[in-house]
Design a protein around this nucleic acid. Structure first.
Length: 398
DNA sequence: TTCCAGGCGC
DNA sequence: GCGCCTGGAA
């Protein structure tokens, strides 16, 4: 666990890090925080309120972002159905599952999301540290048994300069995502229709083929098919034919039809408004769900990590697998790692920023490091460009 | 010929 | 963690 290391750096006592509190207790924790850290305070509780404030001793104030309630979603088999579904409401919850253990179950998501809030709720707050600060964290708990975990994540060196450099590069060059991204879908439509257009556009999209996606959305629109009812009444083959230029069009046609049916039957023709319910739609994974929450609902729940964000974050050395210094292997690891230190106001813009950068300069193959304005800050600069065919995958025999 | 995209299903 | 889907680009 990197926790011990972090603790030693920020001078919080181990006892302060994890504590189990009884009802209505409060705890004071002294903290000396070093610059460059983001202090992440995770409350795990069962539908009780948790209040927290930061009081300071020194004259330097903490910059405390607003508490945000995020449902931690995972796409693997459910392990903790009891907590999620509240099947034992009378039973006092003694063990709160670890945040990362809160498994998401697609089959349960639709029903649970449309009912009450799941009993297990995660609230995360971040305190950004810009200079050495001394203070007292006052945590007030109002739950029976609440586990509080506090840990700090160091933001990467120079990340602000790197981000600024990428923003500069993006000012000049025009990437496909700037004009044909799916957030442009149905921008003139009324809100409900626009949200549906965003969902369908997202489900069809492929970041390397924004123009193709755009054309397919146009084609659906011309045929009056940016409407769940119309899609349900159209047969799958026709639908597939209309969106044919997009990759995997047969599966996408099938998924779009299924999603439209669910939108009609369970959401009154609107799209689901929660991350869980969006993830419950077949063909919608974390990348798309976060994008739709951001664009359609203007409610950013997490970073939309697609292949560009995933690749570039690793090249920049911004993300690591939990507890290691190794690169992340899947986009979900990247998202979790990135969210630990990246300020929330960058969560939504980071996707179009890095997608455009990845389409034009930091390309998957042979990145154009010589054209890159941050090649002096990038640990991977010029390391991938010279080898045109670095690793041979296993060849298929003829 | 190989790689790429995003999610499913094993 | 890999094969699959599908078509385009390198």
């Amino acid at each position: 666990m990197p926790l011990a290391l972090l603790l030693s750096r920020i001078h919080l006592s181990p006892a302060a890090m994890t504590s189990t509190r009884s009802a209505s207790s409060a705890r004071l924790v002294r903290a000396d925080l070093n610059p460059g850290y983001v202090l992440v305070i995770k409350h795990k509780f069962h539908a009780f309120s948790v209040a927290r404030e930061v009081k300071r001793e020194s004259s330097v104030s903490f910059d405390v972002s607003k508490p945000e309630s995020t449902a931690s979603v995972k796409r693997k088999r459910v392990k903790r159905e009891l907590e999620v579904n509240g099947e034992h409401p009378k039973k006092q919850v003694v063990i709160v599952p670890d945040i990362e253990d809160f498994r998401y179950d697609r089959t349960k998501a639709l029903t649970s999301s449309s009912k009450a809030t799941p009993s297990l709720v995660k609230v995360e707050e971040k305190v950004r540290v810009s200079s050495v600060q001394k203070g007292i964290l006052l945590m007030s708990m109002h739950s029976k048994k609440t586990k509080v975990v506090v840990f700090a994540v160091k933001a990467p060196e120079n990340w602000e300069a790197v981000l600024g450099g990428i923003k500069n590069m993006r000012l000049s060059g025009q990437a496909p995502v700037d004009t044909k991204g799916c957030e442009k879908a149905g921008s003139l439509l009324p809100p409900k229709e626009r949200r549906f257009a965003v969902l369908i556009s997202t489900m069809m999209s492929s970041q390397t083929k924004d123009e193709v996606t755009h054309a397919a959305v146009e084609r659906l629109s011309e045929n009056g098919l940016l409407d769940p009812d119309a899609i349900v009444r159209t047969d799958e083959a026709t639908l597939a034919n209309l969106i044919k230029p997009v990759g995997f069009y047969q599966r996408k046609a099938q998924f779009i039809k299924e999603a439209s049916k669910i939108c009609l039957e369970r959401f009154g023709g609107d799209i689901p408004d929660s991350l869980n319910a969006l993830l419950a739609l077949r063909g919608v994974g974390p990348k798309m769900a976060h994008l739709v929450m951001s664009i359609a609902w203007k409610n950013t729940q997490g970073i939309c990590v697609d292949t560009h964000v995933h690749r570039i974050s690793n090249r920049l050395g911004w993300v690591f697998r939990e507890g290691t210094k190794q690169k992340t292997t899947i986009p979900e690891q990247t998202r979790i790692s990135l969210e630990k230190w990246l300020p929330k106001d960058e969560w939504e813009p980071i996707n179009p920023l890095l997608v455009g950068f990845g389409q034009t300069i930091c390309t998957p193959l042979r990145p154009k490091c010589d054209m890159c304005g941050i090649n002096n800050l990038c640990p991977s600069a010029f390391k991938e460009s010279s080898s045109p065919n670095p690793k041979q995958k296993k060849k298929r025999s003829p």
